[in-house]
Each structure stands twice: as structure tokens, then as C-alpha cells.
Computed example of a mutant assay.
Amino acid sequence: MGGFLFTLWHAGWSPGDPTGAVPPCTRHIWKRRPHFVGIVACRIGTAFAARTDRASLFTVGVWTNRLLLWGIAFELAFTAAVVYAPPLQHIFGTAALSPAQLAVVAPFPLIVWGVDEVLRRVRRHRDATRAATLSTSVTSRLVEGRMAEQAG
């Protein structure tokens, strides 16, 4: 959506402008499909993020899953063909993206992966805190139990 809104803004649209079914400023934009490329970019970030539930991707290794890397390479090549190859542009109703649109969409994989990486770090910290609290609680119960046995 960010890519599409950027394209609308770049075409002269601003919030509050009438839109109707297909506003004049967006007729050429529908063919550009920045949202399609944005979705593909986000799915790449998700593919890397989905490799692990708890561990950081840096500990798992970014380049260790060759099948995933080949899949991403194919996905990028196919997306580029759909967006830039004239025969596929005709079939899919697309047109080449502008460099500005590509610049907006390019960081999407890193954003998606980065947010997931932060969430995993928060989960690891929360789990470590819970484990430490549980360990302290169990230890204090054992000590109290032993002291009660010795006193009784």
C-alpha cells in the first residue's frame, strides 16, 4: 500500500482529492502495479523471517538455505519479467516501474524481516526473564523446604 500511495502522490493526487471509480491521475498507475512488486518484496522478507521462530537469522545464517535462495532468485526474475518484458506486460497488464517506485519498494524485505527480528528478540528476552524468575522461585522453595525439614 505504501508503494501504491507513493505512486498516487507522485502522480499529483493528494488526500482529499476526489477519486471516483478510476480518477484521471491514476489511470496510468493501475498498469504500474507497485503494490504487486511491494507484495513480492514483502514476501521475500517473510521468507527469511520464517526460517526460525526464536533464534536470530544471524545465528541460523542468511545464506545457508540454498533452495530458499534459488526460490527467491526465481521470484525476483519472474517479477522483473512480468513488470518489464513487453509480452508479459501485455498479458498481465503491467508497465515498468519508475526508479522512484523501485526505491520505495526496495527496502520492504528488510523492513518485514527487521520487524520480525525485533519481535523474536523481545520473545527471547521475555522467555529468559520467565526462566530466571521460575528458577529463582523453584530454588527458594527448595531452600525453604530444606530449612523446614531441618527445623522440624
Rank of each mutant, 00 (worst) to 15 (best):
V112Q: 09
L67P: 03
T79I: 05
H125E: 09
R126C: 02
E75M: 07
T59N: 06
A50W: 06
P87V: 09
Q89M: 10
P87S: 10
L102Q: 02
Y84A: 05
V122I: 15
W70R: 11
T94H: 08
R51A: 02
L67S: 09
V60N: 05
R124C: 04
T52H: 09
Q101T: 11
A103S: 13
G114W: 05
S98T: 15
S56I: 00
F48T: 06
N65K: 03
D127T: 02
L110E: 04
A73L: 09
Q89H: 08
V60E: 10
F48W: 13
F48R: 12
H35Q: 14
R43M: 12
R32D: 01
L76Q: 05
T46Q: 14
L119F: 14
V37H: 00
L76I: 12
P87L: 12
L69Q: 07
F58T: 10
T64G: 02
Y84N: 11
G38P: 03
F48K: 12
R33K: 15
T59R: 07
A106Q: 12
P34W: 00
V62L: 04
Y84Q: 07
D53Q: 10
V82M: 13
L102W: 07
H35N: 12
R51E: 03
A80V: 13
Q101V: 06
V82T: 03
S56T: 07
T52Q: 13
F78Y: 11
A85M: 13
R43F: 03
Y84I: 00
A95V: 04
A50G: 15
P99T: 05
P86F: 12
I111H: 07
A96W: 02
F74W: 12
V62E: 00
V104W: 05
V105F: 02
A47R: 11
T79N: 10
L110P: 12
L88H: 09
A80I: 07
W70K: 05
P87N: 11
Q101W: 07
A49V: 01
V40F: 00
A47L: 08
W70M: 04
A41R: 02
V115T: 14
V83L: 10
V37R: 01
I39N: 04
W63N: 13
V115D: 11
F48A: 10
T59L: 03
V40D: 01
S98L: 15
P86A: 14
Q89W: 09
V122Y: 10
R123N: 06
I91M: 04
A73N: 08
D127L: 07
A96Q: 09
G93H: 01
L57K: 01
A103F: 13
P87D: 13
R32V: 00
L67C: 07
P109W: 02
W113S: 09
P99S: 08
P109H: 04
H35P: 06
T79E: 08
I44H: 07
W30D: 10
F78I: 05
V62H: 00
